[in-house]
Design a protein around this nucleic acid. Structure first.
Lengths: 111, 111
DNA sequence: CAGACTGACATAGTCTAACTATGTCAAAAG
DNA sequence: CTTTTGACATAGTTAGACTATGTCAGTCTG
């Protein structure tokens, strides 16, 4: 797994889905956007990003279309499918449930 | 990895360290306590718990002593070492940093 | 009292997400 | 024209959490 210091395992799908739910984006831009919004805390490696995108596509949650970036380069633009939107809701709820649960534990001061 | 539905990958060490930082406990009790405090949201499987405890022990963050439970059964009681306390601080800070970063992303509504 | 259940520890084997390291190619920058 | 950057991609590794199993002792139940 290497250093799990720049991502919480299992949240990458959520981050990707959320990011393209606001606006379809190509892979490279998704990674940049996540880093930027998270104030450079979350670093998405390319070796994690592209496999994740393919995973999500195969699952039917996102779909890809070749297009052009502002810079005039070709790139795959990903957008959410209907199923992807449902999945995003599910993962948002899951993250909420779990992160709150963890916070309960780390904030408790009773043995 | 199976179903990552009852734990956020990579947070088990933190949960364990935090739990025994309040009071030394044996493995079984650690798992029960985490479930209880998290309102049954976090489920720690035995197949995750014991390897994690051994990992932490080998790292020198916790140490084990055989003792007796209230029920009069023998069990390994784990307590934090000094290094473990440092590590707990580190993992707490890490969790804060990362979960806040994720929240930034999931709460953003600007493309 | 025998058998089942629960508490408690443990490990082997599997799965999978994220990592490192690489590679390709095109456009922009030097 | 060569290096850097944008962009996609994959092979191979690692490691943490999972399922499934096993043991053994004490306790509850029919």
């Amino acid at each position: 797994m290497g250093k799990p210091s720049d991502l919480v395992q299992g949240t990458l799908d959520l981050l990707i889905l959320k990011t393209i739910s606001l606006e379809p984006k190509h892979g490279w831009a998704i990674a940049k956007r996540i880093q930027q919004i998270s104030a450079e805390v979350l670093q998405v490696q390319q070796g994690s990003l592209y496999p994740a995108l393919h995973r999500l596509e195969q699952q039917g949650w996102i779909k890809a279309n070749w297009g052009e970036t502002e810079g005039g380069r070709k790139a795959k633009f990903y957008s959410l499918t209907r199923a992807g939107r449902t999945q995003l809701e599910k993962e948002l709820a899951q993250w909420d449930r779990l992160s709150n649960a963890i916070n309960l534990v780390v904030e408790t001061n009773e043995a």
